[in-house]
Design a protein around this nucleic acid. Structure first.
Length: 112
DNA sequence: CCCTTGACTATCT
DNA sequence: GAGATAGCCAAGG
């Protein structure tokens, strides 16, 4: 294992493990929290190298959508795990009480 | 070395 | 808001 991974990976694992159930973080946020800004693309690689299972499904894109291709096996697995923890979806996007009208969408459904 | 690939992002049309 | 573009950075061929 090279020097970079030796420091980067454990940092990422710790951050991911710290994400509370029912909450999500972006790849960029995780990278920044681990002390490596701009390393968003490396986060997924680090998670894949984790020796123990991680709540990888709590890590999403900056726009609050899932990183996998829509409809793929992994996508559905991640979506189900999140929903199981109480995470709500507005179509492809995750709702995380980000604005006042998000509650309206939860109660009334997507408007469009 | 050079080129391509990713579970990515920010910015501009 | 959607699509294109340009950064980003380690890994692997």
């Amino acid at each position: 294992m090279n020097s970079f991974q030796k420091k980067f990976d454990p940092g990422v694992w710790q951050v991911v493990k710290s994400i509370p159930s029912g909450r999500v973080m972006g790849y960029g946020e995780v990278a920044r929290a681990a002390g490596y800004p701009r390393y968003s693309r490396m986060v997924s690689a680090a998670m894949g190298r984790s020796p123990e299972p991680l709540p990888w499904y709590r890590v999403v894109r900056s726009n609050r959508t899932l990183a996998f291709e829509e409809g793929s096996k992994s996508y559905q697995e991640q979506a189900q795990l999140l929903k199981h923890e109480g995470v709500r979806f507005d179509g492809l996007k995750i709702i995380e009480a980000e604005s006042d009208d998000s509650l309206d969408r939860i109660l009334w459904g997507p408007q469009d």
